[in-house]
Nucleic acid binder design. Structure first.
Lengths: 207, 207
DNA sequence: GTCTATACTGAGATAGAC
DNA sequence: GTCTATCTCAGTATAGAC
């Protein structure tokens, strides 16, 4: 990897995380990186592809950490399946605690939030997601596939929203340590997973 | 309201919901609406202000419905406070079931997701949010303010993510009726709210 | 008051010289 | 590999027709 390419990736990670994807122009990035505009298109092809590369550079280690944690928790629980809490912790903690790099955490939150998770990244994440879904199926054998999929969807939403700047939270609460935030989020989504469904009646709203 | 202004609002609501805010150009909107480009700036000032007006046009009735439901549920439960489930249902259902207008539902999801909830809309939503937070405080008197704020934050994330196109869900599950989705989401976030916090130990990840 | 024609600035992208 | 110049299209601003 050339020096120029490296500088572009670093600047892009910082600026995308700080201001979001749309709000960051390639001209901001070249100013921060001290390179020429065309260099971005030479090395990456497009702004979208640059985002892909920024994500993929760190997503690999992040997902490896997730899978390692899941393996460990499953070993510790054997022969029983790992608990819902542990499985969700293995998925969530590496996303928030990744090597003390808050820029990347914010970036991942923004990428989820802006609906930009690109196909390339999606492909990269799919094996990890599949592995976690099958772990959850073992932990919750009575749950239907549709219900599991929805609960995973809700959980991803809660996680993504948490990764972005939490402006809705009191300033005080927002300054809690990442460890505490992980615990709060894991407890919340675990409660959601364990909650029973009540599908036997119309919603009250339509009475 | 002039005919031109009306046409612009309708076209903007449809296109913002369909393709997102950033991906929709003002020139797309004027083509759909059959008006002149400058008419947008005459009537609305800017693209951002146009989005504000699109949201405010329907947010008022939506929040009114939320508050009406909350009032009814609180009356029915009196003298006890309304249950967490009912409070959350009163908040979530109108966002998803709003007058059979899936375009606006998608738009609200995208606005939350792209982090665009503009200040004007924020001001418009704040009284409703405050009303619901105080209802939740009554339903969960033992919960600390920080914990309640975080759980509301997680719930908003799950809801916003759900409003967007649920590509991560199986095609089958995605075609469930809005009623069922409301029930699933209410059950999920209610479980999250009722889940106990376990703040008494370090996360396992750091061992 | 409403709307149109036109132009300005900055965005992402590309071709070609070096 | 890198840089200059240029293209198209975005949001925006304004002058003026009706």
């Amino acid at each position: 990897m050339t020096y120029t390419k490296q500088r572009i990736l670093d600047a892009a990670e910082e600026l995308f995380g700080e201001h979001g994807y749309s709000a960051t122009s390639l001209r901001h990035i070249i100013a921060e990186a001290g390179v020429n505009l065309a260099a971005i298109h030479y090395h990456f092809g497009s702004k979208q592809d640059l985002l892909d590369q920024v994500i993929l550079r760190k997503a690999g280690p992040m997902n490896a950490r997730r899978l390692a944690l899941l393996d460990r928790f499953e070993e510790e629980a054997a022969p029983e399946p790992a608990s819902v809490e542990k499985i969700l912790e293995a998925f969530i903690a590496p996303a928030i605690l990744i090597d003390k790099s808050p820029e990347f955490v914010k970036l991942m939150g923004r990428v989820h939030a802006e609906g930009l998770m690109p196909e390339i990244a999606q492909r990269n994440f799919q094996p990890t997601i599949d592995r976690f879904l099958s772990a959850l199926r073992r932990a919750l054998p009575q749950m239907t596939a549709a219900e599991l999929a929805w609960k995973a969807h809700f959980s991803l939403g809660a996680m993504a929203h948490t990764l972005t700047v939490p402006t809705e939270i009191d300033a005080q609460a927002a300054h809690e340590s990442p460890d505490v935030i992980v615990q709060r989020l894991v407890a919340f989504v675990s409660g959601g997973f364990r909650a029973p469904v009540t599908m036997d009646k119309q919603t009250e709203v339509n009475r």
